[in-house]
């Protein structure tokens, strides 16, 4: 599906470009028609595709879970309720296992993170050209269907979690206690600049690693799908081989998307647990 007029490089670039809406360098507002243009729009631009897909998937998650929640009874659960309960119990078990304090926010947060990230990752399993091709017919030049391959999305999640970590660290230990945790360990107090540097890096590394782990995994997975898709333009045999490869990679990817969603959720819980604990 690389198109007759495009080179492989163009095809890859096209797939990695978000549908960005912002102010052009000439002052008009509109959609960026190249990576360069998107970059020149600066910070005050928005990736319409990432927003649309992530919000759509999030609403899908809330819709189904709300539907199950509304009809939830102690009786024999129906199909949807059964599935939802299974997910909820799984998340609840993870929270109970890793989070040793009382906070009614953490479990719903973990559920939202898990389901949302999972659904966003799940978009990766759709054949990569379907939606962009359909969008192209509708006149939309770019479409990136997997929101979690957009660093904006993963960093937004990670930074929100990081904000909660900072908030609860300060709330539970007090500003002094939080500072003491950063400054007075692991070395003796008089070495506090070294401590502060070490702990500071450790603290900052949490959201960055959280965001980059998800982004990196999904981006790499998407890239491999794109590279496999390039084979379809290379004749029957190569195309057949590509088909087999795509199937194999998609099967493996089912594991990856679930695992990444689980890891993101678990680390969120663990970071919040650390924020609540007096000592590391």
């Amino acid at each position: 599906m690389s198109g007759e007029a495009h080179t492989s490089g163009d095809y890859i670039k096209h797939h990695l470009q978000n549908l960005t809406f912002g102010q052009h360098s000439d002052g008009t507002w509109g959609i960026a028609h190249s990576t360069q243009e998107a970059k020149e729009m600066g910070f005050w631009a928005i990736n319409v595709d990432s927003m649309a897909f992530s919000i759509g998937l999030g609403l899908l998650f809330l819709l189904f879970f709300r539907k199950a929640a509304k009809s939830a009874t102690a009786g024999v659960p129906s199909g949807l309720q059964n599935f939802v309960e299974w997910v909820v119990e799984f998340v609840d078990g993870s929270v109970r296992g890793s989070f040793s304090h009382h906070n009614p926010l953490v479990a719903p947060l973990a559920l939202t993170v898990f389901m949302w990230v999972f659904l966003m990752n799940f978009m990766d399993l759709l054949p990569i050209d379907w939606l962009p091709w359909a969008a192209g017919l509708a006149g939309v030049p770019y479409l990136k269907v997997v929101p979690s391959t957009d660093p904006n999305v993963t960093f937004a999640l990670a930074l929100s979690v990081f904000f909660l970590v900072l908030y609860y660290s300060t709330k539970m230990k007090g500003p002094g206690g939080f500072f003491a945790e950063l400054a007075f360990q692991p070395f003796p107090k008089w070495m506090f600049p070294v401590n502060l540097l070490l702990e500071g890096v450790g603290l900052i590394a949490k959201p960055i690693s959280l965001a980059l782990r998800l982004f990196g995994n999904m981006y790499a997975g998407e890239m491999i799908f794109i590279l496999i898709a390039l084979m379809f333009g290379g004749g029957f045999l190569l195309g057949l081989f590509g088909g087999v490869l795509q199937w194999a990679w998609a099967v493996f990817h089912i594991l990856i998307i679930t695992l990444q969603a689980f890891i993101f959720m678990t680390l969120t819980i663990v970071y919040l647990d650390m924020a609540h604990s007096e000592h590391h």
Partner: peptide, 25 residues
């Protein structure tokens, strides 16, 4: 390249978590 999507996503996330915490969980 980072842009306002970061902020939009954060707001969306907060809304989703709030809804989940209030009406789903």
């Amino acid at each position: 390249n980072f842009n306002a999507t970061l902020i939009g996503q954060s707001i969306t996330f907060v809304f989703f978590v709030w809804f989940c915490m209030k009406y789903v969980w």
